[in-house]
Design a binder for these strands. Structure first.
Lengths: 248, 248
DNA sequence: CCGAGCTCTTGATCTGGGTCAATGCCGAGG
DNA sequence: CCTCGGCATTGACCCAGATCAAGAGCTCGG
């Protein structure tokens, strides 16, 4: 997590599609770039593609730390990234788990206001900040897209504040599971991926690992969810799960 | 708070500067409109002024409720507004206190994702949604300003998540007082206004009134702050207050 | 000037979730 | 195959802050 520990070489960058594993990944990434900016018309998209660098980030590697100069913006195309803030004494709050299509580094600031680290192996598109900003000037549609994303993020952040400030441990875990299922478009038939550790879940929900574990076990025991393995679950009883989440 | 209780007449609107108390208020509001959009050049500002309606909102009156159709955007020019979300059973989380110059209703959604209510008597500028959006199209500078504000709000929201998820009661109250002092540019010499009730503070910090009261008394007793009266305080010992806030 | 109804403070007690401490369960490496 | 080390679960106990219960100030209408 800390950049200090272990020689963390910079994330590998592929500048152009090539043969071999990295090449394949880059091709895949190119196809998905469009998810960043569905609102964009052809020429703007081409320009965006032109300044895109592809990045592969192995699980556990950090993308940037809070306070680093904000030289790039990113979109996630594959895998999962967690975004978090820390207190000096090590307490951590994860403010979000990003899924493919999500934007990262949306900041008008000189330095990042939070840290980002890969939960699973991840693929990203990286946009150099100055070039991206220049592109913004020429393409209002892109700016509009960003504003719309910022609004959604803000709404999600407010929902999370409600969770952290006012919900019980049971409600938090239920809300979390429900939210994951919705975002992944999975649920009662298709299993929902739960790739992050119990520690990460705890730091996202403002709880301890033990409490998270207990609540997940309780949900399983009461038949609200089923777990084929520790990192996947099925929503057996959506009604009761929603009720437990105290949806506002 | 609930629109149901008591016949809440719609907020009074002055469409043009006039003589009398409302007129004076509107004049004042006009002068301050510029705070919304310092980035704007002359013509854009004129256009913005042209679609502006002035609103006076007495303390305790609600501006809109979560779920209401989002027909307007606002800027606060005078007073204080609180923004909050509620759970069906009445639990409440205040997600922000707005000060003059702050923007409200920044949403790309059909309906408001939260409720807003005046803490003190307030003056606002109201912009009809469709007209404002049309203006956005023509003036990228305005859009840029909004994006920048959204970024700041997002950063503030993440900071608040850290507070709600990981800080102790003492740290929450200290962070809150410090944040207020900074935003108001007041502190050890000029008293900081604390216009909201202890209930509001509790609902902002994810605590109970009793805990908030106890922590404020403790801060007073330890000589970190002084309180000329219940709704103003002085930062006597900024060093210790910052330490108590566990700044990250 | 009074008093009703608030908000705020303070004290006493209770409890949800944190802390501490094993124990179980993998997956990776030998 | 075993064994090691990191997650995850489970149990026992504890404590920060919630809850319950009085008082103590304000404030505003009359």
């Amino acid at each position: 997590m800390r950049r200090a520990e272990g020689a963390v070489e910079p994330a590998e960058q592929g500048t152009a599609p090539r043969v071999g594993p990295c090449g394949v990944l880059c091709e895949d990434c190119r196809v998905r770039t469009i998810s960043v900016c569905r609102a964009l018309a052809g020429p703007a998209l081409d320009e965006l593609e032109a300044i895109t660098l592809r990045i592969r980030l192995p699980a556990g590697r950090n993308l940037f730390d809070e306070g680093d100069p904000a030289e790039s913006l990113f979109t996630l195309t594959e895998g999962m990234i967690k975004v978090f803030k820390m207190l000096p004494d090590g307490r951590r709050q994860i403010t979000g788990f990003l899924l493919p299509g999500d934007f990262l580094g949306l900041a008008f600031f000189r330095s990042y206001a939070y840290s980002a680290e890969a939960v699973t192996d991840a693929l990203l598109c990286r946009f150099p900040r100055d070039r991206f900003m220049a592109l913004l000037e020429r393409h209002p549609a892109l700016e509009k897209e960003l504003l719309s994303r910022a609004s959604s993020e803000l709404a999600a952040a407010q929902e999370q504040m409600l969770l952290l400030g006012r919900k019980s441990a049971r409600e938090r875990v239920a809300s979390f599971l429900l939210g994951l299922a919705r975002r992944q478009g999975a649920g009662s038939t298709k299993p929902v991926a739960l790739p992050m550790s119990r520690w990460d879940i705890a730091d996202y929900l403002g709880l301890t690992v033990e409490t998270v574990s207990r609540e997940i076990q309780a949900a399983k025991a009461s038949g609200v969810i089923a777990m084929p393995d520790r990192h996947h679950f099925l929503v057996v009883d959506p009604r009761r799960l929603a009720a437990a989440a105290a949806l506002g």
